[in-house]
Write a protein that binds this DNA or RNA. Structure first.
Lengths: 198, 198
DNA sequence: CAAAAAACATACAATCTGCATGTATCTCTC
DNA sequence: GAGAGATACATGCAGATTGTATGTTTTTTG
């Protein structure tokens, strides 16, 4: 007797293979790198064929982008979840900072979001992704802190971008083994420097 | 009659081909990217063969590293040259900031040093290169400014790294068309925030 | 000037990517 | 509910790339 084919709907199949591909790709892209991971290896790990990959994704880069997008959302969600309603703007910013650095400790995230992402997709795309998922909290926090302390009006978007860059570098350093404590201290000092009245 | 072979010394030959390779590679790596540039294309542009390339460099990545190293040194030199002896620490820092942003406007430098460099060589290697060429000025400037204003003692190396990251992001944004003015303003605000007494 | 070394050239094997073409599995409509 | 059409997937192929192994030529050295 034939093993009865488990009658599957099309969107089930799509969802399943896409999920398998994303999981396998994430694993390999983070363990090695985008460049050092070939599509044959990915599909092997996912248990599908290259045909399936190129059916669901335009090319290897599109798969990578999907992985990055998913990861950026995961980071944003973790920060969201870890951030209490917050009392004062400054405390909210500090809590957010902490949450970000913690979230970026999940193995592979720095490589995915801070090294390969910008190189493979370009800064413009990464900026767009960041603006959509992350960075939101930071921007709003800074805005609140600045207007609360009525500081001289710095362009908030620019400030957000540059502080975010500092956060990113901190995450990379911590991932490389640097002491989180020192980086947190300096980050808070940077924030205080531009948000609390002189 | 034969065109007399212009009797060349060996180190001349080496210097010449290495220079040709570095020039061609720099041009292509910056116009496209590391990943999108093949070694056949490079040697074609340099007027040599792949044999010569692999004789002088261990692999494509080693060639890339040589290009990056040379470029980092060029940036450092430009900053050095553009920085007057400087009166006060703060003015020196501001002058250095300006010089860095100007130097990074040379086309291709952001891609080379800020996008492909970290992805291809890794942050550790880039940190080492930065520490050797650039970042020196920044670190010393911050040290001077902090001790002059007797601030609370922040770990200077960490502060240097995070501010450098902000500078890098600014260079990327400016290269993408953002107004240099705003970024300069925010950078100065960040520096003042952690170096001038509260 | 012969031998060794360095600089370069050529050829090859192993991959990899994207596409074109073929097949199986749903979905939809009459 | 049966067949046409669409969707999901499989396979094979062409072009290109990387690194190496193996020649050949030019310098250097003893």
């Amino acid at each position: 007797m034939q093993p009865k084919p488990p009658r599957q709907t099309n969107s089930d199949r799509t969802a399943a293979t896409r999920a398998d591909l994303l999981a396998a790709a994430r694993k390999l892209f983070t363990e090695k790198s985008y460049a050092d991971t070939g599509t044959p290896e990915i599909v092997m790990a996912a248990g599908v064929t290259r045909g399936a990959l190129y059916h669901h994704f335009a090319d290897k880069q599109a798969l990578f982008r999907a992985v990055v997008e998913r990861e950026a959302k995961a980071v944003a969600d973790e920060i969201e979840r870890a951030s209490p309603p917050a009392l004062f703007p400054r405390e909210a910013l500090i809590a957010g900072s902490h949450a970000y650095l913690e979230a970026m400790r999940r193995p592979g995230r720095t490589r995915l979001l801070l090294l390969d992402g910008p190189a493979v997709l370009g800064r413009a795309v990464m900026d767009e992704i960041d603006a959509r998922h992350g960075n939101r909290t930071l921007r709003e926090g800074l805005l609140a802190a600045i207007s609360a302390g009525n500081l001289k009006p710095l362009p908030v978007d620019v400030l957000t971008a540059l502080l975010a860059a500092a956060f990113d570098r901190a995450a990379l350093a911590i991932d490389a083994g640097a002491p989180e404590e020192e980086y947190r201290t300096v980050l808070v000092a940077l924030i205080d420097g531009v948000t609390s009245p002189r």
